[in-house]
Design a protein around this nucleic acid. Structure first.
Length: 429
RNA sequence: GGCGACGUGGCCGAGUGGUUAGGCAGAGGCCUGCAAAGCCUCGUACAGCGGUUCGAAUCCGCUCGUCGCCUCCA
């Protein structure tokens, strides 16, 4: 199993399963509003990856954090940020549950990790990697020799936009922030009342649930700098070897519609699943390699739906389909090679056209799409209409047959004729 | 300005030196009472310019373009 690592830019080979468990830490959303479809990409991709690693025999612990204390939450819900965070966390769980991929093993909240966060900051202060200043605590960037290595940023090029006199150096970043007016959540600390900075939350949560060293750290490409760069600086300075592989998924781009994040009218996960269904949404993510950007638009979603339909139709198509040997290894090879889902999709289409339904189903199952090829029995009244249509056809009463077909379609079902005066009934999509 | 990702046939999208990727859309045909589904046939692409090589979409350089990040957006 090989995966592209952001730090080195190269493929890293995972050890065999017998060598120990695989810890995966993936950055989840800041919960302040309904999550948009772009937020779903890391959830989906890393859920698939965890699933695949388990299939391959690995003992996986998948940790997916929820950032529930943050400026954005204070801004979104002045005076009742905790309540908003609680609500938005539930929205996120509801929305991602709808994909049917299950939940990560651990979904830690920043607000439930305060003691560990404070402890980690104390350790950094004690070792000279951080310093207190008027109730804030800042990380001393110059104290960490390989700052910038993950993102390729040169420390001398990182500049602050607004000067902050409490910092020793403009590149330093906050580990702890003193409570400010208008912030309705705060915790006691050795530096007074305040709340954690964003980056330290993840360093603490990862260590708490996976230990000081683990295999995979994932998240969106937009988090490489500063978030992950800073996490790395904090954790390594604290003596944690931290992640061995950094995986960053490509961003989802909103195109073809008048949507932009700044305007705030981007499609939510909820909207997309309501409009297109979870299966089409999953197939959409499957079409692009996880590292590449992907465009979200009516056109690309329609194309994904067409592909999903082609797999659905396999369940009712009549094929010979032999019993191929060693075909499954093609899926294994594609996924073991940097988790190449588009390559798998090509293999699945090939099997589909050859009628290898059990192989296709087995492949789709990895991605939570096994339902595409499963039969959905029609209700009795629909079956009865379809049988009457069959009888009408047999008597060449085509007007009646067409009328019944229209009636069946109006009820949300579709009849397809197959040789031998038979038919099959499936839901319309 | 700095750093990073990317640029493949109408569209989406694999492919890290030499073999047909695959899908969607479209055209023609078969099947069908008519459809639907399915099946058959049809596309020789790799931003541009140089270079390396017997040979490059694939390696190197430059140019152009798109996108992301640059202190709290997955």
């Amino acid at each position: 199993m090989r995966l592209t690592d952001t730090l080195t830019g190269e493929l890293v080979e995972l050890p065999p399963p017998k060598d120990g468990p695989i810890g995966m830490y993936v950055c989840g959303p800041t919960v302040y509003q309904r999550a948009h479809i772009g937020n779903a990409r890391p959830y989906v991709v890393f859920s698939w990856l965890a699933n695949w690693l388990r299939y391959r025999g690995y003992d996986v612990t998948y940790v997916h954090n929820i950032t529930d204390v943050n400026d954005k939450i204070y801004e979104a819900a002045p005076g009742h940020s905790a309540e908003r965070a609680r609500d938005a966390t539930q929205w996120y769980l509801d929305d991602t549950d709808a994909f049917g991929l299950g939940r990560p093993d651990v979904l830690p909240l920043a607000t439930e990790t305060i003691p560990e966060i404070v402890g980690l900051i104390e350790q950094l202060v004690a070792s000279g990697h951080a310093y207190e200043s008027e109730g804030d605590v800042y990380y001393r960037v110059t104290s960490f020799h390989s700052y910038g290595k993950l993102s390729g940023q040169r420390p001398d090029q990182v500049e602050e936009q607004e000067p902050n006199p409490r910092k020793e150096d403009s590149r330093d970043f906050a580990l702890w922030k003193a409570n400010k007016p208008g912030e309705d959540t705060s915790w006691e600390s050795p530096w007074g009342l305040g709340r954690p900075g964003w980056h330290i939350e993840c360093s603490a949560m990862a260590a708490k649930h996976l230990g000081p060293e683990f295999w995979i750290h994932g998240g969106g490409m937009d988090l490489v700098f500063p978030h992950h760069e800073n996490e790395r600086a904090q954790s390594l300075a604290a003596g944690h070897p931290y992640a061995k592989v950094w995986m960053h998924n490509g961003l989802l781009r909103f195109t073809g519609e008048k949507m932009s994040k700044s305007v705030g009218n981007v499609a939510s996960i909820q909207d997309v699943i309501a409009e297109w269904g979870a299966e089409t949404a999953l197939l959409f993510f499957l079409t692009a390699h996880w590292r590449k950007p992907i465009d979200f638009s009516p056109e690309t979603m329609a194309a994904a739906k067409a592909q999903a339909d082609s797999f659905r139709n396999l369940s009712v198509s009549i094929k010979a389909g032999g019993t191929p040997l060693n075909e499954w290894s093609r899926v294994e090879e594609a996924l073991d090679d940097d988790f190449n889902t588009p390559a798998v999709l090509a293999v699945l289409h090939e099997w589909r056209s050859r009628g290898h339904i059990s192989l296709v189903t087995k492949g789709l199952d990895i991605f939570g799409l096994g339902s595409l090829t499963s039969e959905k029995p029609a209700p009795h009244e629909i079956v009865e209409l379809a049988d009457r249509r069959l009888a009408a056809r047999a008597q060449h009463d085509f007007a009646e047959a067409d009328r019944l077909r229209t009636e069946i379609e109006a009820a949300g079902w579709e009849v397809r004729d197959i040789p031998g005066a038979q038919h099959q009934i499936l839901p319309r999509t």
